[in-house]
Amino acid sequence: MAGMGAAYSETLEDNLQKYIGAELPQANPMCNFQSTDRVPITMTPQETITSKEGVDGTTIKLKVKNNIFYRGKLLVSRGTLATAKVEIVATQGMNGIPAMIIVDRFEIPGLDSAKMKSYFVKKGLNLTYLVLPIKWVLTPFPPTGSLANFVIGGPTKISPKTDVTIYYYPDWECK
C-alpha cells in the first residue's frame, strides 16, 4: 500500500511524521482549451492489477506502444516507460454491478501531464443489463424480483494485454 507500512508503526501518527512539512500535491494548472488537436497515446501496463487484490493509490509502470508524432516531430518514442496511479479499485457488487479500476495521473517523460485527458477506466462484465429486465418481469410476483439483487457483476483487471489509451493536447497553453 503506497505510503503505508513503510516502517513499523505504533500509531497512525507515527507514519505521518515523515510528511510533516512535505510539499502538498500540485493542483492542475488552468489551460486554454481552444486547440482541438490531440494525439492518442497507447500504452501497455507492465504489471497486472486485479479488482480483487488491487490497492488504491498503487503506482504502475506502462510502456508506450508506438512512436508518437505530432506535426512530424517525435513526441515520445516507442518503449518509453511511463507511470500512472491506480486511483480507485472498486469491487463488483450486487445487482450485477461490475468491478472498476480507474487509472489516472499519468507521467510520460517529455510530456506535460497538465495537457492530458488521462482518465482511464476498465470495467468488468456489467450484468445489470440482465438484472433490470428480470427485476421488471418478476415485479408482479414479490419477492421473487428481489432475488435478482444477488446477481454479482464481473471482476476486472488490467494486465500487459490491456491497451491503455489517453489523449495528449500539445497546443493547450497552461499556466
Partner: peptide, 13 residues
C-alpha cells in the same frame, strides 16, 4: 483511510 494512503501530506500538515 483513502487520504491517509494517497495524500498523507494533508493529514501530516
Amino acid at each position: 483511510e483513502y487520504i491517509y494512503t494517497k495524500y498523507p501530506q494533508f493529514l501530516a500538515n
